[in-house]
Nucleic acid binder design. Sequence first.
DNA 1: CCATTTGCCATACATTGTTGGTGAAATCAT
DNA 2: ATGATTTCACCAACAATGTATGGCAAATGG
Lengths: 125, 125
Amino acid sequence: MSESLGQFEQIILTAILSLRDEAYGVTIHEKAVQLATPRKISPGAVYITLDRLEDKGLISSWLSDPTPERGGRSKRFYRLEALGERALEESAATARRVWETVAEIWGDVAEGVRRRPKWSPARPR
Amino acid sequence: MSESLGQFEQIILTAILSLRDEAYGVTIHEKAVQLATPRKISPGAVYITLDRLEDKGLISSWLSDPTPERGGRSKRFYRLEALGERALEESAATARRVWETVAEIWGDVAEGVRRRPKWSPARPR
DNA sequence: CCATTTGCCATACATTGTTGGTGAAATCAT
DNA sequence: ATGATTTCACCAACAATGTATGGCAAATGG
């Protein structure tokens, strides 16, 4: 019954984890944008994904009191549940394997160092 | 126009890349299983995903001649196209950010070293 | 020539991801 | 106090992706 997260779900869980106790819609969206650049992410996509993750028991949420800032209405905070931690752990391990496999061949892509291989795949017609 | 790969598509592209000129259905499936453990992956899932990736122009394929092994019928080989390389590059960079973010908090998950944080998120009711 | 092996592919369905919004609650300026 | 602005939550409808299951074809060995 392991959960096998989708790409977006993985990003959302990672955002929640890294935001610790400051994880609510807006901050989660911002963090997700950072993680996924240059992909575009809409706020709505974040909220519906949060709903589904909560339905599955991977995260839980509660409403805060409003804060005394301009426009500061009450926020819905999120945290990982045990199930979500396990799913993310597994999923992050896969992300690592993917990243390492790619890096072995192309070099450190995130640093823009993309080395090109010397071989060229045979491609008969 | 950026392609924003799904999780599975990312795995398949990574498998093709790492298999260089030995990338066909069966080997791609095997590699995908390694990358995604402990997730289960069916061969059928691999083939349909290959079809869709080819439709989108991320990969291309051609049929080989049969090999002289028992049951060795002709294979459909795959290679990354330029579009697929760019999509994978971008997607791998995201995978890296996810993994690093998680690793910063939990430690090296893939090595099973999972350190626990000292704080515990406040969770009002 | 038939059982076995290797491999490709289709159908049908379930789950995820995206777009493009709506509208509430709070503060600020006038 | 009323209208503009900001912060934030959420929804509906759809598009894209992922999974399960199983069939079929081509080659070889006996």
